[in-house]
Simulated scan of single mutants.
Amino acid sequence: MDFKKFLPWIIGIGVLIIGVMWYFGIQNGAIEVDQSVKKEWGNVETSYQRRNDLIGNLVKTVQGAAEYEKGTLTAVIEARAKATSVTIDPSNVTPEQLAQFQQAQGGMTSALSRLLVTVEQYPSLKANENFLKLQDELASTENQILTARTRFNESIEKYNNYVLKVPRKMFLSDYKEKAPFKSDAGAEKAPNVEFDFDKKETK
């Protein structure tokens, strides 16, 4: 049998198989970077949820230890509710979604700061062990949030680089560019959530 006349067919089939495998590799790679984004966003949500839970406990502790203006506590409670109501689909992260999310979380930070200013008027909280424990946990959680957001942005960068570069872009039309977190002013530092009331006295 003369195999030479079948050689072009053999080569063609080989090239086709290689092409199909290459295409599958591109699709599988896109799935991997997309799943990585979803995983890192889950870590961001978990960190913010822990923060919101701690703030809820803080409000309860404050209510039990001092008589506060209702408006201050109400502002924290409302900001917390708004922050937990904003959700994002990691499959389609847009700049508008992240801006809304960051605005809600920023409102929570602002309300918390106002509460802590009011707290300074009640020295009895200095000896409240639960309050002091919340201090440490909140500070730790703010650092966790910063780390989670950084890793999320890294996964977004990897995803965008993968799906937007040619020639992969031609085969990944279903995968759209995703938006990363944009830093707020002063976002390089975790918010100050210390409850060290003696600082004013020592200055």
Rank of each mutant, 00 (worst) to 15 (best):
T150D: 11
Y68C: 00
S140G: 06
Y159V: 08
E78S: 13
T141M: 02
A79F: 04
Y68G: 01
E129R: 13
G107H: 00
Y122I: 01
T61D: 03
V76A: 10
T72W: 01
Q121T: 09
L132T: 13
S110M: 09
T150A: 08
E32P: 07
I88H: 02
N153V: 01
E45Y: 00
A81Y: 15
P123R: 00
E69N: 11
T72L: 06
S173L: 08
E67C: 06
A81W: 12
K169V: 12
L98S: 05
E157T: 11
V62A: 15
E69K: 09
Y122T: 01
I55R: 09
E120Q: 04
T147H: 07
E69Y: 07
D34K: 15
E32R: 13
K38A: 10
L98A: 06
A127V: 08
V76W: 10
D53N: 15
R151V: 03
K60M: 08
D53F: 04
Y48L: 09
K169M: 10
K133E: 07
S47C: 03
L98K: 03
S110H: 14
A65I: 00
R51Q: 11
Q97C: 07
I55Y: 10
T147C: 01
Q144C: 04
S110D: 15
T141K: 01
T72A: 04
I145W: 02
N153H: 02
K176Q: 11
T109R: 15
T87Y: 05
S85M: 06
F152C: 06
E142P: 00
V117K: 11
I31R: 13
L164M: 10
R114N: 14
S85L: 06
S113H: 14
N153G: 01
D53L: 03
E78A: 11
M170F: 14
M170G: 09
K39G: 09
Q63S: 04
T87A: 07
T109W: 09
L172F: 10
S36V: 06
P90V: 11
L116S: 08
Q121V: 11
Q144T: 10
K178A: 05
S91H: 13
N161E: 05
D136P: 08
Y48W: 13
G107T: 00
R114D: 12
E177V: 08
V44C: 08
